[in-house]
Lab assay of single mutants.
Amino acid sequence: MGFKLLSKLLVYLTASIMAIASPLAFSVDSSGEYPTVSEIPVGEVRLYQIADGVWSHIATQSFDGAVYPSNGLIVRDGDELLLIDTAWGAKNTAALLAEIEKQIGLPVTRAVSTHFHDDRVGGVDVLRAAGVATYASPSTRRLAEVEGNEIPTHSLEGLSSSGDAVRFGPVELFYPGAAHSTDNLIVYVPSASVLYGGCAIYELSRTSAGNVADADLAEWPTSIERIQQHYPEAQFVIPGHGLPGGLDLLKHTTNVVKAHTNRSVVE
């Protein structure tokens, strides 16, 4: 069995187990497998329904001669939608809004960016022009300005110390501490036991640490421990890039980060 097929099978099995364990909360999309990078042309966006009122959005972007996937989250909030992270750029984010209108038909009224990198804030200006209120932590807003990236308009308070959590509509926002970046936030959907790890969490097929220019490698494993301790009931975990899975993604990420750190020390 090929690795790609095995990865998709694991996603399907995880979703099936969740649907059985929580039949009222989960209505997993039966329309197909989780979209992969090879299936999404740059400039297009796919939506994948995880649970009743919960979707991931998947886009792709060219970077350094390669094409990478990027995940975000959409959560229903009454007759409105909360968006977590842009679709990595203005063109993708405009396509995301169009796809949401086509498939869901509810307005996106608020959006949260989970850290300051372009795959999370690139497209904020498109959201703002569409009347979406954009939010991020003060740290993310400051770092985005320093980096020359787009800056969300509103500040999220109460997320300055490791372990801080605040309720934001249908989700809980959690600051686990520094990891992929010093400002990275985690998003949890309690009604569906869905954990969105953003770039602080890796997919299972990833074996290298990737972009760690703004990471705190020493603190990252401790931050992941905080996530595990705060959300032990999480059933569906979405990484910032690639295929979702279960809580095993947290341990896998820790292993990859520690291996990278150990290699760096040896070198």
Rank of each mutant, 00 (worst) to 15 (best):
Q49V: 11
L156H: 03
S70A: 11
L247G: 09
L13H: 10
L243P: 04
V37E: 08
S160F: 14
C199Q: 00
N149W: 09
L195P: 03
E80I: 15
F63P: 07
S193G: 09
R76D: 10
V126W: 09
S70W: 00
A136G: 13
I224M: 12
S31A: 12
L10M: 07
A129F: 05
V256I: 12
Y196K: 00
L5M: 11
T60N: 09
E150D: 12
G177R: 01
L9F: 10
Q49M: 11
G123W: 03
D125M: 11
A90H: 15
L9C: 09
S16R: 15
R46E: 07
V75I: 08
S139Y: 05
Y175R: 01
L83T: 04
I84C: 02
A213S: 15
D119Y: 01
E147Y: 13
R263M: 09
S7R: 13
R206I: 11
S31K: 12
V54E: 03
F26N: 07
S56C: 10
L217F: 15
S139R: 10
N92P: 05
V187M: 04
D183N: 04
G245H: 04
V132P: 00
V112L: 14
S160G: 13
Q103S: 14
G65F: 07
L127V: 04
M1N: 04
P170Y: 04
C199G: 02
L5W: 13
L250A: 03
Y196Q: 00
Y12W: 10
A178I: 06
I20M: 09
P107D: 08
T153Q: 15
G43I: 03
A87P: 13
D214S: 13
V166G: 05
R46V: 13
K4C: 15
E33L: 10
A51N: 15
C199E: 00
S181Q: 00
L156S: 01
T182C: 05
K8C: 08
A133T: 14
D52V: 09
Y135R: 00
G246R: 08
V126L: 14
V42R: 12
I58A: 08
G131M: 11
L195D: 00
Y12G: 11
V75S: 03
A66G: 10
P41S: 10
E101R: 13
G89L: 04
P170W: 04
V28F: 15
S191A: 07
Y48R: 08
A218M: 05
L243E: 07
R128P: 03
P41A: 10
A129H: 15
Q61L: 08
N71I: 03
H180M: 00
A209K: 14
G197Y: 00
T109W: 12
G78I: 10
P176M: 03
G105T: 06
Y196P: 01
G197N: 04
A21M: 10
P190E: 06
H241L: 01
L185E: 01
V256E: 04
Y135W: 07
N71R: 01
Y231F: 15
A218I: 06
V112N: 03
P239T: 04
L247P: 05
L82P: 04
S27R: 11
A90V: 11
I186E: 01
R226C: 03
V108F: 02
Y188C: 02
D64K: 14
T109N: 15
E39M: 11
A94Y: 09
R76F: 15
A129M: 15
G246H: 06
S191G: 08
L156W: 02
G123N: 04
E225L: 15
T86K: 02
N71L: 01
G158Q: 14
E101P: 15
S193C: 03
N71W: 00
A192N: 10
L47V: 10
S137V: 06
D214H: 15
V171E: 02
Y34I: 15
V265W: 09
L185A: 02
V11I: 06
R46K: 06
L173Y: 02
F3L: 07
F116H: 15
R128F: 15
T134N: 02
V189Q: 03
P152K: 03
E80H: 06
K91T: 10
D85W: 00
E225T: 06
A259F: 06
S56D: 08
K8G: 13
L204C: 04
H260S: 10
M1L: 04
L243W: 07
S113C: 11
Q49D: 07
L73G: 09
E147V: 12
R142A: 14
L159E: 02
R226H: 07
N149F: 12
E172M: 12
A133C: 13
L47Q: 03
A87C: 01
G240R: 03
K91I: 09
L143P: 03
E219F: 15
V212Q: 10
V45A: 10
L250P: 03
G163P: 04
V108Q: 01
A234Y: 04
Y48H: 07
G122F: 04
G78Y: 12
T14V: 12
A66N: 11
K4L: 04
G242W: 03
V237Q: 00
F174W: 01
T254N: 15
S139V: 10
I104P: 00
G169Y: 04
A165Y: 14
R141S: 06
S7D: 15
F174Y: 15
T36K: 09
T93W: 00
T14Y: 12
V54N: 01
E172P: 01
T254L: 09
E99A: 15
E267T: 13
V171C: 03
G169L: 03
I20S: 10
L159S: 02
G43V: 04
I151V: 14
